[in-house]
Design a protein around this nucleic acid. Structure first.
Lengths: 115, 115
DNA sequence: ATATTTACTACGACAGCCGTAGTACGACAG
DNA sequence: CTGTCGTACTACGGCTGTCGTAGTAAATAT
């Protein structure tokens, strides 16, 4: 079974995460589960990758963090909220995706050539 | 104008190059021009990236090199030919592309959500 | 009482891409 | 006959994002 390699997904983790923050703030564990569910187990993000993406994106101003100290039962969590800059970045990345898709598809051979 | 970032193309340079070797051997400079032309200048591969990809892929057994010593006018060139392993790799990468595309597109918001 | 799930943090390694620089040959202009 | 442009590379080192491994700790299920 083909799996998605890290080199291939590289650069898209950002938009995957930002997408999940578009409508409401969220936190690491929940996001990782959502990615898994939404991709039908085809992509399971590594924890370290996810948390380092948070750090990087906060540094870049794409997201902001806040801590929910005392939840009704449960450990304290660090939530992330997308910023306006983050939304712009997301939009730009989506456009880039369209372009990239078009380019790459020119280099995908149709069945005939793959003899 | 949106440009394709290196993190996004990463992992696809291999299939782009292999595609151009599917029907006949070729060499660095020609391949770089073909990529440029076929992508309508949307993607211009860096020389260093291209040549290091050659080295890597030869090490992995995806391509084989041979030198054309004395061409009718012109410097000597190193040509690369795709191997059977390379063809298999290319096929596998194309399948992976289909999968990746499906996954990523789930995280591209439709216009409505991008308010 | 113990295992599992939740929710992270730290550290270091690695691979692929890229910037910079340099080599060298041929062709063509001035 | 000198210089610039196009062709065809090689070498070296840096950066970034991902990943493996490991550890911490609270809450929940068994």
């Amino acid at each position: 079974m083909a799996e998605i390699s890290s080199d291939v997904i590289r650069g898209y983790n950002d938009i995957i995460i930002l997408y999940l923050l578009l409508s409401n703030p969220s936190y690491g564990y929940e996001i990782s589960k959502q990615i898994r569910t939404m991709s039908e187990d085809k992509y399971i993000i590594k924890e370290t990758t996810l948390y380092s993406a948070f750090t990087r994106m906060e540094k870049n101003g794409f997201i902001e963090s806040f801590v929910d100290e005392d939840l009704a039962g449960g450990k304290k969590r660090t939530y992330y909220r997308i910023t306006e800059t983050g939304r712009e970045h997301y939009r730009a990345k989506c456009e880039e995706w369209t372009l990239t898709k078009e380019v790459i598809e020119k280099f995908i051979a149709d069945e005939g050539r793959l003899v």
